[in-house]
Design a protein around this nucleic acid. Structure first.
Lengths: 148, 148
DNA sequence: ATAGATGCAAATGGTTTGCAGCTAT
DNA sequence: ATAGCTGCAAACCATTTGCATCTAT
């Protein structure tokens, strides 16, 4: 049974002694109900529908706080060799852990999860005496539709 | 037996009908003899010792060409949650394929390689009908020295 | 001769920051 | 009352690009 969003928000605030503001609450709630990872800018546009005067800086600041407190993950899914692109963010609560497949042609994103792989990573970290906190694993290639 | 650097350079040129210039040659040779991944700026500083008037743009342009032709890999090793950081580049020839462990505290980078993991990735890609071309796999955590 | 390469400086674009005013406590 | 937040605009910084000049072919 997942923790209710209200409780999670309270926990988020109290973890850092943050104040409860309408911007912060709206960002938290809106972000947490996303099923797909999204960019800070995409989130900003969604938020504007509810609170037109909200600022991008507030969105970035809040996302950063969410990441630092384990409520969000930041992803770099840009195909290397391309130009700078924005990070994606995804809520960690209410979502199983997963990694990504990215099509370098059409940009499509798929998620995958593999337990063997997860275990293997832990073994590798252990081998190097690393205390593993997170990982980035992205497979690049051409998706079904793009390789003729 | 590895291909000699001269031959590789010629191949690099002819693959794209590029001209042989002293900047291009110097960048290619200097980059190819690096054992560690490095940033475009770090490479630029090394190059300046041999060719003080070389421009950053030329370094970036050449690295991009190297990436597009499989002579270099671009890596994003920045610990998420931090600010924008530069990409790292590493030569692909004369180096075995490997992935990275990054210490989020001291920034130390270690390399690892695991065959089971490589095979597993191919299986996953196949499962999703992806034609795999590359991957990014970075494990973040605290290294031996940093976790008390 | 001429298409391509270079270096410079300016532009880009995602993200961060300084600051003056606003608001939760 | 006051420390924390917000929105704005300016600053940042890695990377890219336009352009006039130079150079390999």
């Amino acid at each position: 049974m997942k923790e209710s969003t209200v409780t999670a928000y309270d926990r988020f605030l109290s973890m850092n002694g943050l104040r409860d503001t309408k911007q912060r609450r709206l960002i938290f709630e809106t972000f947490m109900e996303q099923n797909e990872h999204l960019t800070a800018e995409a989130l900003y546009h969604i938020l504007q529908k509810d609170l037109p005067q909200i600022g991008q800086a507030t969105v970035y600041r809040t996302l950063k706080l969410l990441c630092e407190n384990g409520f969000a993950h930041e992803l770099s899914l840009h195909s290397h060799g391309g130009h700078a692109q924005s990070s994606y963010f995804e809520p960690t609560l209410a979502r199983e852990h997963h990694d990504h497949l990215v099509c370098t042609q059409c940009g499509r994103h798929l998620e995958f999860h593999n337990e063997v792989l997860e275990t293997l990573q832990e073994k590798i970290a252990e081998e190097y005496s690393f205390e593993l906190t997170s990982h980035t694993h992205v497979l690049y290639g051409k998706c079904k539709n793009c390789h003729s």
